[in-house]
Computed example of a mutant assay.
Amino acid sequence: MARIAYVNGQYLPIDTPAVQVEDRGYQFADGIYEVWLVRDGVFLDHAGHLARMKRSLGEIRIPQPMSDVALDIALRETLRRNRLTDALVYLQITRGVSRRDHAFPAGTIRPSVVITVRPAPRAPVSARAEAGIAVITQKDLRWKRCDIKSISLLPNVLAKQAAREAGAFEAWLVNEAGEVTEGSSSNAWIITGEGRLVTRAADETILNGITRQRILRIAKAQGLVFEERPFTVDEALGAREAFVSSATSMVMPVVSIDGRPIANGAPGSLASALRASYEAGEES
């Protein structure tokens, strides 16, 4: 089945040339993106993704290109045209097309909007969660505004590639203080020996994941003790459990870091329970 993309008001086969050479997303990575996981045709955490999109646009001063209603129609129509009910829906908004110059273009230009959809079958993700994943550590080389969901992801790409070449699923990024900031495409968590859930606070060093936010609400509703603070690689290696969270992985247990096992090297009970709560749609 040919995949269909939404490109600036048109629904086109995904292999149709449609993005102009002087689009600032292509020239400068001057734009933002969002990714929704869709299950049974439902966009999970939809309101949270829209709110973060608006924040990211505001932080880099790109006007929202269409109303919430129009965007919602475009997202759902692109999904419908691809005839999928379990999918990942990717939205990218760039500043638009103008003569190449680092500074913002003079006057008003129209932001560019692209929506693509791809299948997201459940079985591979569930199997990965049952086995747990390996992560490696990499130096955090990213810019200092990781709270913006920017399309400028080269350091993340290099870290993810290093993980794949090492036979791991994810890379945990480590700052100069030896603290884990987050994964190349996920938030990082540990569970201490005392059963405390720990993840880094949502400041400018991490992307405040929508899945991360929901896990914290679930933890609060269930009376779990959690701390939003930095943790080191050594603390993670000594933890009872570890996991990553993202829209695509939900809650994914980590069983080893740099080839060293976490606890008994198997997915932990609390991470598995949080995943079950997330999949069941539990909320505060």
Rank of each mutant, 00 (worst) to 15 (best):
R76Q: 06
R122S: 14
L216H: 08
M1E: 09
S277M: 15
L37I: 09
D140Q: 07
L84D: 01
V89P: 02
L91Y: 09
A163K: 01
G238L: 12
Y6L: 11
V125P: 14
V255Q: 06
R260S: 02
D72T: 11
E227R: 06
A188N: 01
W36K: 08
T199G: 05
A29Y: 08
I191S: 00
G58H: 11
V254N: 03
G183F: 00
K220S: 12
I151P: 07
G48V: 07
P111K: 03
A162D: 05
G183V: 05
Y11C: 04
V157N: 07
A168H: 11
P267W: 01
S126Q: 15
I133N: 02
V117L: 10
G268R: 07
R128F: 13
V174Q: 01
R76D: 13
A276D: 12
S112I: 06
E282C: 03
I206C: 06
R275L: 08
V135A: 06
A127F: 06
R118Y: 15
R76M: 08
D15F: 14
T78W: 05
E204G: 10
P63Q: 11
V38K: 12
E182G: 09
V135E: 00
P267H: 02
E165I: 14
R145H: 07
V21Q: 03
R240Y: 11
A236M: 03
T205W: 11
R110C: 12
S112W: 13
N175K: 03
Y33M: 10
L237Q: 13
A47T: 14
D45T: 10
E182F: 04
V97Y: 04
I133A: 04
M250Y: 15
G178A: 01
S112N: 07
T248C: 09
Y33W: 09
S184I: 00
A168R: 05
I262E: 05
T85D: 15
I136Y: 01
I109G: 12
L153H: 08
D147V: 12
I115L: 04
S246K: 00
D23V: 04
S150I: 06
